[in-house]
Nucleic acid binder design. Sequence first.
DNA 1: AAAAACCGATAGGCTAAGCCTATGGAATTA
DNA 2: TAATTCCATAGGCTTAGCCTATCGGTTTTT
Lengths: 300, 300
Amino acid sequence: MELRHLRYFTAVADQGSFSGAARRLHVAQSAISEQLANLEHEIGAALFERSARKTGLTPAGRAFLEEARRILASADHAIDVAQRVHRGEAGTIRIGFFTGSMGMDLPRLIRTFRRQYARVRLSLVEMTPKQQWTALLEGKIDVGFTRRLEPEFRSELRAITLHQDPIVAILPKNHPAAPGPVDLRDLADENFVLSSRDVSPAVFDKVIELCSEAGFSPRIASISSVWSSVALMVQAGEGISLLPLNEQQFRTRDLAFCPLKAKNAFVEFVMAWSPRRDNPLTRSFRQLALAHHRDVAVRG
Amino acid sequence: MELRHLRYFTAVADQGSFSGAARRLHVAQSAISEQLANLEHEIGAALFERSARKTGLTPAGRAFLEEARRILASADHAIDVAQRVHRGEAGTIRIGFFTGSMGMDLPRLIRTFRRQYARVRLSLVEMTPKQQWTALLEGKIDVGFTRRLEPEFRSELRAITLHQDPIVAILPKNHPAAPGPVDLRDLADENFVLSSRDVSPAVFDKVIELCSEAGFSPRIASISSVWSSVALMVQAGEGISLLPLNEQQFRTRDLAFCPLKAKNAFVEFVMAWSPRRDNPLTRSFRQLALAHHRDVAVRG
DNA sequence: AAAAACCGATAGGCTAAGCCTATGGAATTA
DNA sequence: TAATTCCATAGGCTTAGCCTATCGGTTTTT
């Protein structure tokens, strides 16, 4: 079955006549006859009742007509949708985010965008900062809220810094250094519970860098990939941790979050995209995100 | 655009490769290339990003893919629906009825049928008994609840009598003949408000026949096509009326409905259909209607 | 570093699908 | 009865869609 069959079929149904439809479609009547015979043969049921002088639908034909109209309308719609997306008037923006993005008021940005671009769907995909880079390259997401890019991605991806996220020490409530500000040198002999480098090289490397500037290399007791298990470990006395402030989803009563004295204790929160896959729609999303974030930054 | 384009398109989208799709569809890779180039040209937007080694969708392509899948599914569905209707498993039964049919417990029949044939839609069309005959011939309805057929339709249509509907005299409350039983001869000098012969020849002719048997031909004061205006006329003292009992939708306080003494004061309530357009679905509907009516008759 | 493998685009030829004109049978209209 | 209108069918033509083969480009293998 092809759309041609449906076009012919609906034309005949509309006109109530094969030859009438042929005139309307600017083809010979025999073409209509042949195509509809094929269609009926494929379906295995008569769609028309042919009696000389008058042509009407069978019950099966009436049922098929409803569907045929719907399909033809959908076909037009499909082309229209593709064109609108091509022009940047509609579509889906796939957004990568990670736990820490939520602290940055991403939800409010989403709401703002939804209001302004009602025809645009937003699809949110949770990924680690590192996963987002490759996802951007592969075109699995259009924009990523992630950490500063590793050098190997700098040529292929663009990124703009939205925020400097302070790194804090996470200590048991009763730790002598709490509540800070903490000098990292005082923590040199602690065990560290860090988040995996696979999740966010930027954070991991920054932690190592800070420790090294403080004159030691951290003794790593355990590595974890999710915030909740880091919290659990620290509470359990397994060690202490250093993490960006915004990655903490909820403050736990039993933990202290202590600022560091080091002035470069920050990791960047960036919005990244692939210039090679740029398109009008994601461009306007980025623009709005930037404006939105400036707005938030000024308020805060 | 043809369905072929959509089949090729979704295959490529699924396989992530032109040649892969070609293998799956058992055609040459060049055929895929050509057809998709045509499709993209018609839409006016690229649907795929071709880079050697990897082929992915553009944003427009992703949007189009959703629609394409829907359309292909609809096409399968359309064929399926037509086949089911052809086999009598689904479809729409278009039923003609007139005011009097409601008195015959048509609503309950509808409900019963709906329960048993959930996939079948019933479409109810109000028409006069006479309109139903031609509608049956033209295939505008599948079954009609109507009055006895005029002779000219007897060869083309079948009808089965469900009920004999007594004709009653409709008199002002204080009329001397009320509440009956009435001998028609007592009404010979009255003015009559009758319903139009165009609405129901059976009723009109029966009324004339009854009067003629009573030895007079009725003086017709007014002819009306709807019950409510007949009631209005009689209440206003314009005349009296003779109508089938079941065509009265609601009893009005100011009117008397009086049985006649004549023993043939009946018109038939019939179910009619066109044997030429018969199909399994309407056949089973008729069967159920018959059983249902027997049931009602026994109870009453 | 060269070779092999794989990708999609393109060219040229072939075939069959779809269209055309012409005709025929059936029913309606003049 | 003749003329008209309907749809089906036959036969021929054109072209759309498919095939094979090849090319340039990239990745993978050797």
